[in-house]
């Protein structure tokens, strides 16, 4: 067993897990943060994307102990303090950027990582950045629209 202590969405958490526990398992099973989804479990679909020390990673392809001491952000941390939807989440709702919603946590976390680095991405840059996030419902068009709208809202706010 390994004892893992990390900060998730601003709160310090400690839990024991096996060496083989993936970060996605640790978040879902140990910390009960089930917003992070596991789609393919083979690092292709991106539903499990979270941020570790500010950078997007696939939490199904990282062991929990590799995040020892790290600052982790998950979809649960994307809402506003009053529980209302965050800017990117709201844009996904406004622009119909989801249908079944399974891929959405990963899409939102990837979009957040992109917009942090590049506040005004082109459509090509958005599609390129989402290479590792698969959606089987939307055809991506409205996801791209949502991220463009979120980028605009976030730029206007700064």
């Amino acid at each position: 067993m390994v004892t893992v202590t990390l900060t998730v969405n601003g709160q310090e958490k400690t839990s024991d897990c096996e060496g083989r526990s993936l970060l996605s398992d640790f978040l879902r099973d140990n910390l009960n943060l089930t917003g992070t989804h596991v789609g393919c479990d083979t690092s292709q679909c991106g539903a499990c994307v979270v941020h570790v020390d500010g950078e997007a990673v696939k939490s199904c392809t990282m062991f929990a102990w590799e995040a020892q001491g790290a600052d982790v952000a998950t979809i649960e941390g994307m809402a506003e303090d009053d529980g209302s939807l965050g800017t990117i989440q709201q844009a996904f709702q406004d622009h119909h950027g989801l249908q079944c919603g399974f891929c959405t946590p990963g899409m939102v976390m990837s979009a957040a990582a992109l917009l942090k680095k590049n506040p005004d991405p082109t459509e090509y840059e958005i599609r390129d950045y989402l290479e590792g996030n698969i959606c089987r419902c939307t055809g991506y068009q409205n996801i791209v629209h949502a991220i463009q709208a979120a980028a605009q809202t976030m730029r206007a706010a700064t």
């Binding site: 990673v57 696939k58 992109l114």
Partner: peptide, 9 residues
């Protein structure tokens, strides 16, 4: 290589 999340690890 791969995608952004893969390149971050």
């Amino acid at each position: 290589i791969g995608d952004p999340a893969v390149r971050n690890r």
